[in-house]
Design a protein around this nucleic acid. Structure first.
Lengths: 128, 128
DNA sequence: GGGGAAGTTTACGTTAACGTAAAGCTGTAA
DNA sequence: TTACAGCTTTACGTTAACGTAAACTTCCCC
């Protein structure tokens, strides 16, 4: 009853709607390091999660380098105090950036509401 | 008591912390069209708002082309029904995209909370 | 009237994030 | 056994969003 689930590059590409080229590119950039069976790449559930994080980062406007940083945050390999402090600083920066994005999004949503309303009004005018 | 406020390209560049090259590039791409006094560009308050919208779009991960679309939404020059319907569809798409971003942000915030907590815990362990 | 400081155009350079093509191995279903 | 579906590497091409440099006007100040 062990979950020895693995994925091929094609499966993941289909699931996340990207090309295999893209996934290999992320590997080039050091964002994932799948196992190999011979030549062929074999992805673990953990690799899959990493891909998910990268793509979410993209949706949030992060560069691959930034996403790499973010993903690195989840395993503080920093075994000394200095590393941990640096890590906390980065986390704080991210949080500030996210807050700004939230403000931006709310403002934009408000404007879309207005724009849509104007749309509806204009169409109602055409009715008459 | 009329507000005949105008801005030079340098003023706007300083205010928004971008280069003048950037602002001229946006003009090249048809995102702003400042007036001219001779050769020199003269920006109106409306131009300034447009710039603001572009930069907010950037923070949200929109391309310049997308921001241009978004900005175009605010003045429905579409005087016929078909235009208005197309407009509403675009607005709906934007809204969906924003909702996704919101979900992404909340998830990321949660993870940052966890990561920070692990940081604090690890530092406390070092204290002992 | 000789510098700056700030504006202009023109044009080539750069980085990120892949796309696209070529050429080859590999299992398996007909 | 061949045919193709899916995997591999290598490598050049592409797009967006500017950077950077050169060469030039214009205004203002001392």
């Amino acid at each position: 009853m062990n979950k020895k689930q693995t994925y091929s590059i094609g499966e993941l590409a289909r699931e996340f709607d990207v090309t295999t080229r893209t996934i290999r590119f992320y590997e080039d950039q050091g964002l994932v390091s799948p196992a190999r069976r011979g030549q062929t790449r074999v992805y673990s559930p953990a690799d899959r999660v990493t891909l998910k994080l990268i793509l979410r980062g993209k949706r949030l406007g992060f560069s691959l380098a930034e996403s790499k940083e973010l993903i690195g945050m989840y395993q503080p390999s920093g075994d000394n105090r200095h590393q941990l402090l640096a890590l906390q600083n980065k986390i704080r920066q991210r949080r500030d950036q996210l807050e700004q994005q939230l403000r931006d999004i709310h403002a934009l949503q408000q404007e879309l509401d207005d724009a849509e309303q104007r749309c509806v009004d204009a169409m109602n005018d055409l009715e008459k």
